[in-house]
Design a protein around this nucleic acid. Structure first.
Lengths: 355, 355
DNA sequence: ATTAGCACTCCACTATAATGAGTGCTAACA
DNA sequence: TGTTAGCACTCATTATAGTGGAGTGCTAAT
């Protein structure tokens, strides 16, 4: 027994219907729903087959059928192929998003936060978005400035314009000349260097040259280390967590509590981000259905993610989390369009950024 | 009719019992619960009085009584007085917190986040904590540095060591000398100035002196404006939102959804922070019971807040949000201790901070 | 191969009754 | 006069049974 055209059509009809209603769908419904002109009895036979093949499930005897993960998977895969071309319809929502991106303030954090919010409002699902992760970590610039009699400010700029400041307290006074020398020392030795290449030998060499001010070098290096650590720590913004209450199948206390926790502990979501970033299936869109997700608390959800890429090899992830019966069609095309918008807009950008 | 000693005792017993069980409490329960040795009938009479006085409420005829907001209020006020002295018991939890604060990394943000988490875990309520708000906004230091051929980095330091960086793109090249001049110009004119006092006249004066580089001044001033804006925007960290599911009276979908939204939209919480900061009742602890809260979505909750103050007049807020029947006793003493710990520890601090 | 018909299953819903915790009131008591 | 025992009454909750409907699976007829 295999999946012929008719079975496929019936399966699709079942899924479509279930996506709308959220209720198990029966044979009679399908018999009217499709243009196949088949009686409910015939449909019943086919459904029986589909169940045996694992595409649909009966929650209990004498209830309709609902799609299994395998069923969804087939549906999504199929759809992704079909929709590939007709993407460019640029829905109203996406235009809104674009508008928002254009009159943005220049803080990426704010943009991302607001984008998550917007997406959540438009789709009625929960959303997450991860800030671009820096790849090529080269030091661009280091500067020490005196702010106070006893306080120095370290400013470190990394490629991709990630900026980090750190206050350093000094015991002995530094005169302007010494400060200038230190700055030159740091910049001549470290500028343009990939962060990974800064090693102990180099540091001790610097310290030696710094002479009496070796202690300051230590503190600066600590700050540099902190930049690296910061970079590894992915920032994730979420929004629309309350949307899960809109879907009864997720809204019972047990599940809701777990999901909310997952959203709060963004750390858990980073697994998802990581997974998305590694796997490259060409389209840049990934769909996790039910148990396919790497985050166990989301086994009752589906997750659609998109990877976007800014100019300098910085990649981030946008994700939409909803019930298994989410509107894959809409979600995927929204994400696709958003992804391309994001790319374009930031690529036109002059690189002005702030931390 | 007034509140004699016996009524008071009965009220207290009712509240105690209700805090534990969450169920309306009846006369028979109280009759055994207290050491007053009164029959349930007598208790009933007293309860009838208490209801008339507005301290307790009957959810429906022939149910037990539950405390009204007024009842809670009396209980809390009374307790705050009693517990005033015996505060120093330094519970286990607080020691944990202290330990955590001591081996902190130096990023305030991380500390606050983790503190919220810790509090939530220990109390089983939802928690929030706001970063200290800067009061005296004096400019301490401004620096322009060349990072690239076409990019300048502005670094702005404000009193309280809030630091802001902004990248500026320039069209025409700047030589080192011009840069130095600009730096001197900016610092001599602006250093030590309260941000409010920077006005248009001053800016245009600066521009005039900058001559050909007036455009850069504009951009720097934009960045300064952004610092002010940042400062006004209170950062709030929350944790333990899932805890609301532990209390049936909050866990129904309607309420839960609203509360979760409130937690996500931290902006709403800032009203609470503002309210807490303005009102100074001496202890630094405030208790909002039910409808007393300034945030309407929390009308079914109680909120306990503490104001902490760091050395430089920077104030922040810690808040615990739970059901009306929260364990006020524990929450208040925990907050009190935490507050004092926070003060002490940060006061010992050398002021090292980062943004 | 398809369909009509029928018996059967099971959930969801409703109505009804039983339960029991709790009150208010009255009358009796110290 | 304050306290208590007793009793009738209320009402949310729980259990119970009954009903209708949606749906299936099977069989026999087309």
């Amino acid at each position: 027994m295999d999946l012929d055209e008719r079975k496929r059509k019936i399966l699709q009809a079942i899924i479509r219907n279930y996506l709308e209603t959220g209720e198990p769908v029966g044979s009679r419904t399908i018999s009217k729903y499709t243009d196949l002109n088949l009686s409910s009895a015939t449909i019943r036979n086919e459904m029986s087959d589909l169940e045996e093949l694992g595409y649909i499930i009966q929650p209990h005897t004498s209830a309709g059928r609902i799609p299994s993960d395998k069923g969804y998977r087939l549906y999504v895969d199929q759809m992704m192929i079909e929709k590939e071309e007709q993407l460019s319809q640029a829905t109203q929502e996406v235009k809104e998003l674009q508008k928002m991106l254009l009159d943005r303030e220049d803080k990426m954090e704010a943009v991302l936060k607001q984008m998550a919010k917007m997406l959540a409002a438009n789709t009625n699902y929960a959303t997450m978005i991860s800030a671009p992760q820096v790849r090529g970590n080269k030091l661009k610039f280091i500067q020490l400035s005196r702010v106070d009699a006893r306080q120095l400010l370290t400013t470190i700029v990394v490629e991709g314009n990630v900026i980090k400041n750190e206050m350093i307290s000094v015991e002995q006074m530094l005169d302007d000349e010494a400060l200038l020398k230190l700055n030159i020392l740091l910049n001549t030795n470290l500028n343009g260097l990939p962060i990974e290449e800064i090693n102990l030998a180099m540091i001790s060499n610097l310290k030696q040259q710094a002479g009496i001010h070796a202690g300051i070098i230590s503190e600066v290096m600590d700050a540099v280390a902190a930049v690296i650590k910061d970079g590894e720590h992915v920032e994730i913004y979420t929004s629309g967590a309350n949307n899960i209450f809109k879907y009864p199948e997720l809204a019972d206390n047990q599940r809701a509590s777990e999901l909310i926790t997952t959203f709060e502990e963004k750390q858990l979501l980073s697994e998802l981000v990581q997974d998305t970033l590694t796997d490259e299936t060409g389209t840049g869109i990934q769909v996790y259905i039910g148990n396919e997700t790497p985050v166990k608390t989301m086994k009752d959800c589906s997750v659609v993610t998109a990877t976007y890429e800014l100019e300098e090899g910085m990649k981030g992830t946008i994700g939409i989390i909803g019930p298994r019966r989410m509107d894959y069609d809409k979600v995927i095309s929204t994400l696709k369009t958003l992804k391309s918008q994001l790319d374009t807009i930031y690529k036109k950008e002059d690189g002005r950024t702030s931390s």
